[in-house]
């Protein structure tokens, strides 16, 4: 026998189920008397620094049907590349930016939408810059453990080329699943980012 490490095991995950919106976006699903607004529904204030952008997309299952019961969360740095977190030691993030967003897929189309700003660059562990990116976390009925992925920006070609995480991906044809092309819709830069849970276009998901 050796000494014990005395570690606990993480609580095991369970699916968020079909009614995740009751707990996470109750106002969106018609329970309007409990919380004044849904958590993560507003990432910006008027004074938030940075370029206004919109991130939109859908989550598709293995037969090409968009999920209408998914919940997507984003976590991102501010325009200067700083996170609003006590773990952020490089400076103080924009107090007018939450960095956190949460969107229920539209009940008819499944589309999720985030009104946010384009994040600045955040360093990799060794200090090299990472390309600007947004972390996404996806849960839904049928997803047994939340899926982590990233969105990189289609108009950041050179930065994406040099990104240390994208560079490590062995199957180069899959890198494109993390890069959202830019369009301009209604005068605002819009990054359209569909997520594919399975199949030929399966999005890269990370074990972080």
């Amino acid at each position: 026998m050796v000494q014990s490490l005395d570690r606990l095991k993480e609580s095991p995950s369970q699916t968020a189920g079909p009614y995740v919106h009751i707990g996470c976006t109750p106002n969106y699903c018609g329970i309007e008397q409990v919380f004044p607004e849904d958590l993560g529904s507003r990432m910006l204030k008027e004074e938030t620094r940075g370029e206004r952008i919109r991130i939109v997309g859908r989550v598709f299952d293995g037969v090409g049907t968009p999920l209408k019961d998914a919940l997507v969360e984003v976590w991102q740095a501010d325009a200067a590349g700083l996170y609003p977190s006590p773990q952020e030691t490089r400076g103080k993030a924009d107090p007018a930016f939450t960095g956190f967003g949460r969107s229920a897929g539209d009940m008819a189309t499944g589309e999720f939408v985030f009104e946010t700003i384009k994040p600045g660059s955040v360093p990799f562990k060794d200090g090299r810059p990472q390309a600007p990116h947004v972390t996404l976390w996806i849960v839904a009925r049928g997803i047994n453990i939340g899926l982590h992925t990233r969105l990189y920006f289609g108009d950041e070609g050179a930065a994406n080329e040099a990104d240390p995480i994208l560079a490590r991906i062995e199957h180069r044809s899959r890198v494109a699943t993390l890069i959202a092309p830019k369009t301009v819709e209604g005068g605002i830069a819009t990054y359209r980012h569909d997520i594919f849970l399975q199949g030929e276009k399966e999005t890269i998901f990370f074990d972080i």
Binding site: Q76, A77, Q87, E88, E202
Partner: peptide, 23 residues
Amino acid sequence: SVTRSPQKALIALDNTLSEMTGP
């Protein structure tokens, strides 16, 4: 879960600040 489960391996990502921080 049958049609909603990724079939390819997850890709290991060493934590960067993006994973170590949170709201």
